Simulated scan of single mutants.
Amino acid sequence: MHYNWGIVGSGWIAHEMADALIQEGIGIYGVASGHFSSAKKFSEEFSIKHVYENYQMMFEDNNVDIVYIATPHNSHYEIMKEALLHNKHVFCEKAITLNSCELEECVKIAKERNLIISDGVTLFHMPIFKEIQKRVLSNEFGPVKMIQVNFGSFKEYNVNNRFFNPNLAGGALLDIGVYAVSFARYFMKTKPDVVLTTMIPFETGVDETSGILLQNKDMEIATISLTMRAKQPKRGLIACENAYIEIYNFPRGDKAVITYTSDGHTEEVCCGESRLALNYEIRDMEEYVTNLSGEQNLEYIRDVMDVLTKVQESWESNE
């Protein structure tokens, strides 16, 4: 069973999602954007029949089942809340909100109305992650001891770019950090209850470079390194007692390399395709809506946002 998807936003990620919806044989029911001219152009590009003058008109259309939010993340909360209040399931790009308070308010509305919330952290939906997590949780490699995540994205110096704009919730944490924290949480048995961090700001005040240390009650530790002004490999590592697992380009990873402690031999595991990252998101979202499921996915999203919020609060208290 497929559902009618409405897209809010018309930027590059909205284009990628539109392509994926078409590939999945679903298509796009309608589109709305901050500017009607942008929505109109988007509709012509993807042969979308319904173009709304504003978000509200989309939400009032009873034929729309799922709203996909692809606007800058400082606007996610208001749009998602309004969509939920109009009884729409919501798939929202990352970071899903700016803090836990915003997210929890939306979760409360969704639960009251039996609606689904999910987000665009691709790794939660990639087949390689599901396969490796299954093997880690089965204790095949022994207990998890340490998780390390690196993500460095070099953004050109431009104080006007949204990545460095505090009014648009710029900074590394809510842009690339959400992937890194999601990787760590996905392979930790339980939510981290210790969050330590340090940060170097860009001249506009947003976080440019940071380090995050997490620990949970199971004595698992994760270290995270983020920067927006220097390139780092997108590398995630899960170090277990009997092996360590590396996943490169992890946000849309499709391959893992396992190195066994006993003799150093390696195993390569390939699963899924990077190019289908958004397709996997669509398939999972439709399954969640059909079965009113996805509780584990939402638990990860909430735990990640809680960590991100604690990190931001720590920085603010040190200013």
Score class of each variant (00 low, 15 high):
F36C: 03
D193C: 12
S43E: 01
K81E: 15
E273Y: 15
K191G: 00
A169F: 11
Y244R: 14
P201D: 01
M199S: 04
E241L: 07
I128K: 13
W12S: 12
T259R: 14
V289M: 10
N249A: 13
I258R: 08
L173C: 08
H86I: 01
E82C: 14
F129L: 12
Q133G: 08
E319V: 03
A110Y: 05
I258P: 10
E268G: 12
N74Q: 14
C101P: 00
K108F: 14
S314M: 01
K130Y: 01
E53D: 10
H73F: 11
T223I: 03
Y248V: 03
G171D: 01
V51Y: 03
D19F: 10
I48C: 04
P192W: 04
R229C: 03
M199T: 00
I79R: 11
G294M: 10
R229N: 04
L196H: 06
L173S: 05
G177L: 09
V311P: 01
N4P: 13
L226T: 01
R302D: 03
A230D: 05
V67S: 07
A95Y: 04
R283N: 03
Q23D: 08
E53Y: 04
E241M: 09
C270A: 12
K310H: 14
Y157C: 06
S33P: 09
T290R: 07
A32V: 02
E267Q: 13
F91W: 11
T259W: 10
G152F: 12
Q215T: 02
H2Q: 14
V178M: 10
N160S: 12
N161F: 09
F59S: 01
G205S: 06
L115H: 02
H50L: 04
N158T: 02
V311C: 09
K111G: 11
I245S: 04
Y29D: 00
F91Q: 07
K41T: 08
S210C: 13
D254C: 10
V257P: 05
Q56E: 11
I176Q: 08
H35V: 01
V257S: 05
L85C: 15
N114F: 04
Q296V: 09
P143F: 06
E78T: 00
V107F: 13
E140R: 07
S75W: 07
A169N: 14
N54R: 11
K134L: 07
A243Q: 13
P72R: 13
K111A: 11
D193V: 05
D218C: 14
K94V: 08
I247V: 12
H76Q: 04
E105W: 02
T198Q: 09
T71Q: 04
T197C: 14
T122M: 04
